[in-house]
Design a protein around this nucleic acid. Structure first.
Lengths: 132, 132
DNA sequence: AATATAGATAACGTTTACGTTAAGGTTATT
DNA sequence: AATAACCTTAACGTAAACGTTATCTATATT
């Protein structure tokens, strides 16, 4: 099994964040890499995937706490029917939330477009006046 | 002209935020209501609109600083051609940004959906096993 | 006019998400 | 084996975005 392994600065470089940030996410329990004999962090592919999720979540306004709960969802490995049901329910909640985020952003988008067309309008008017 | 006017707590109630927050946005220059003779804040419809924008921006991960710049764009009233061009350029930048936010969220959405279907799969398997 | 409710400023406190040293230990390279 | 490059924990610092509290003033209601 060709399991890629990354050091903390490998990931820091790749995602353009500080090693401090990555350690901070670990402090908060969002990620938990293996350690070498010398106690240095070694990240697997799935750790890398988690980190990607963390950064995506952050970009869209989710707090580390919320992201943490989403990650729990991601690595739910339980075989208990009731637990799975709870997890699915939580996932559906988050889906709703994400969808409402998308809607809100689309609203912002359309307002921005309106704004732009108003500005373009004014611009062409002024340029026409300039022509004379 | 039937100009609606709101007190600070009117808006706080409507948007479910604290009056402190609204005052804070004013401190940061994002909103600037009229004052009564007794120095109390009175918000117009357009102030209310700005506040809505502020909250929307915040929900989607924009900092008050970024939102501030977007608002400047909204109330740009300049007649200077060059200034308008600059404003349009900035608006286009923000549009791009919003669109990439939307894309990212859609990615999150599809991963969430995948996750959910995997969980549903496991659930039905377990329930089938339970049946026997 | 008196009282209740609401609003003002101002100062200090708090949480989140890191940045920045400091004082070392580990790994890789020559 | 020595040196550079990288890593560790730990502690303190910081910026953003408010919350909280105190003290005082305005407005609304009976």
């Amino acid at each position: 099994m060709n399991q890629a392994v990354y050091s903390i600065s490998d990931l820091a470089r790749e995602f353009e964040i500080s090693a401090r940030s990555i350690r901070f996410y670990e402090e908060k329990g969002l990620i938990a890499p293996q350690r070498t004999v010398g106690n240095q962090r070694r990240y697997s592919l799935s750790d890398r995937y988690r980190l990607k999720w963390i950064l995506r979540g952050k970009r869209f306004g989710y707090s580390l706490d919320e992201i943490s709960r989403m990650l729990e969802l991601i690595d739910s490995k339980t075989e208990a029917i009731d637990q799975i049901k709870v997890t699915i329910a939580y996932g559906e909640e988050k889906l709703q939330d994400i969808e409402s985020h998308i809607e809100g952003l689309q609203k912002m988008r359309s307002e921005m477009l309106e704004l732009k067309s108003r500005l373009l309008q004014r611009l062409t008017e002024l340029e026409a006046k300039d022509q004379r």
